[in-house]
Simulated scan of single mutants.
Amino acid sequence: MQDIAEQLQAWHASGRSFAVATVVGVSGSAPRDPGAALAVDADGEAVGSVSGGCVEGAVYELCQQAIESGQAVLERFGYSDEDAFAVGLTCGGILDVFVQPVVPGADDGLDAGITYIASGTPVALARVIEGPAGLLGATVAVTADTHHGSLSPGGPTTTGALERSAVAEARAMLDAGRTGKVTLALDGRPCDPTAAETVTFFVESYVPKPRMIVFGAIDFAAAVVRIGKFLGYRVTVCDARPVFATTKRFPEADEVVVDWPHRYLDSQLTALDGHAAIDGRTVLCVLTHDAKFDIPLLERALRLPVGFVGAMGSRRTHLDRNAKLREVGLTEAEIARLRSPIGLDLGARTPEETAVAVAAEIVASRRGGGCLPLSAGSGPIHHDLARATASTEVRLRSA
């Protein structure tokens, strides 16, 4: 819902009822990830998408029905071999879509969740998508230190233990920035989704945008900034040379900092001015290829739990840089984290082509891609979903 949060907040603030359809499960080659959402208001206006087009019409109608009935529904969409024109996914995948009506002021959990999401406050929204009819659609909005909403809005019931467990699970997923399903027994215990009398929650974690910090205010950096913004990062450019590090040269960056790279990185180890500190999603692109900047910076960066560290330079520069990193005490395991020369081998020459190569390696690192043409393989297209499914199966077998 994050990408349509501004519109949802506007509808909510005006007291307008609407319905939100959210992708809560994906199997096979589906076009959108869990968390993708389409919303329709009482006047028929629609925002967002759940499938890129192939089932939007059917989901739109479900949203209208939910507004009229006030009832939430879980619907599955998949490809139909019998009728190629039937509602389904021509890519062969399966989408589970949860459609929930929203009446402003009627649900503390949804009210708080929409407000938090629109304001950028980290929050996990846990909604019951499968289970007893009386719980379907029940929502709790969970932050780091509190929660809003209840599984029993009418008063205390036997769902107290279930609610406490759901809040604890949602808070753990928020801390990790994860979105996915959680299945619990009615008494709150974790259990196999196939067990009898279970409740399945879909937990959506909304956290600030991941950060990309580009060190080195060179011409290639401008292209990397643009593609970093396109990928959804909050982008910072840092360079110690004030003549190069200017907002005029990098108008699309969220911020331009004049400072020594290693000193700026040190300053980012804790949250500043309400922005996210560096974390496991952070991308560091070192484009200076100048030892006096690179070595002190990489000495620190390669010891931090960030998601990606890449550095520009020739193969000779790479070997010289590694030797200097050993001299300052980095281990072989720490040096092995460095992606250098940065980017995939696309034969790039221009700054824009180089930025595409850099972005491709970042996406592959994040999603587990094999960096081969899709036409060269026959396995899953979405590697991260395949890994998540395998991990869940292993966990259930060991439970």
Results as ranks from 00 to 15, higher is better:
D187S: 02
T139M: 06
G137F: 12
V167K: 08
F202E: 01
A141K: 05
P122S: 09
G188A: 08
C191H: 04
V167G: 11
T158M: 12
V199P: 09
L151Q: 06
A185E: 12
T146M: 09
I94P: 01
S152K: 02
V182R: 15
A106L: 01
A133M: 09
G155N: 07
T194L: 08
P193F: 11
A106H: 10
L174F: 06
V203W: 08
V203P: 06
A141E: 02
P101N: 05
V199H: 08
A133F: 05
R189P: 01
G160K: 13
E163A: 07
R164H: 12
T194R: 13
T200W: 10
L162F: 13
L174H: 13
G177W: 14
L135Y: 10
D107C: 10
P122K: 07
V167Q: 08
V128S: 11
G131A: 08
L136R: 15
C191K: 07
T146F: 07
G154E: 14
V203Y: 05
G154I: 09
A170M: 03
T121F: 00
T183A: 01
T194S: 13
G120T: 04
K181Y: 01
A176D: 15
V142E: 01
V97N: 07
P193C: 07
D145I: 05
V167P: 13
G180K: 13
H147C: 10
A106G: 07
T194K: 14
A161P: 08
T115A: 15
G131P: 07
D192V: 10
H148Q: 15
G177Q: 11
A118G: 11
A126F: 10
A141Y: 03
R178H: 15
C91Y: 10
L95K: 12
C191D: 01
G155S: 08
V203Q: 04
D107T: 05
R178C: 00
A176P: 10
D175A: 15
D192G: 10
L186V: 11
P101Y: 12
V97R: 12
L151W: 08
E169T: 04
D108S: 14
L186E: 15
T159C: 04
L174R: 14
K181N: 15
Q100A: 11
A176T: 13
H148G: 01
T158Y: 09
T139L: 13
A196N: 12
T139R: 03
L174T: 06
D111Q: 04
C91I: 07
V123G: 01
A141N: 08
V103D: 02
F202V: 03
L136W: 07
D192N: 15
A138G: 05
E169I: 02
L186D: 06
T146V: 11
A166N: 06
T200I: 04
D107P: 00
D96C: 06
P132H: 14
S165P: 04
A170H: 03
A170G: 05
A138V: 00
F98Q: 01
S165N: 02
T157S: 15
T121L: 09
T159G: 00
L162M: 05
R189G: 13
G92P: 09
L184V: 09
D187T: 09
S150L: 09
T179N: 03
G160H: 12
G131I: 04
T146N: 14
P156K: 14
D175L: 09
G134Y: 00
L162H: 04
G160I: 00
V199F: 08
A168G: 04
K181F: 01
